[in-house]
Amino acid sequence: MPEVLNPVVVGIIVFVLAAFVGLEIISKVPPTLHTPLMSGSNAISGITLVGAIIATGAGSGTLGSALAFVAVVAATINVVGGFLVTDRMLSMFRRPKRPEDGK
């Protein structure tokens, strides 16, 4: 049997690489879009909803279920609200004026 990596180590590798990808793509976002970037990335951090869904599973008891319920509510607020408000903001960003407007 070959030795198998500890899942935590695999996780660290994934985390570090993803963080570098994030630094790389986000440093190119212009200041104009910083607010939508924040609310959009904030919605992505709502991915913890996946964990909340799993936590509602069997075998968690009353306390566990209560924690899971609140987690689902909070994460869903984060996801639904975050993506919606980002879309609303971005829909307002208007393209440059047509030349005939200027003169």
Binding site: G11, V14, F15, V16, A18, A19, F20, V21, G22, L23, I26, L37, M38, S41, N42, I44, S45, I47, T48, V50, G51
Partner: peptide, 12 residues
């Protein structure tokens, strides 16, 4: 998915 999503937001 949580690790990658979280890392992206952390970096941002």
């Amino acid at each position: 998915a949580l690790i990658i999503g979280g890392a992206l937001v952390g970096a941002s």
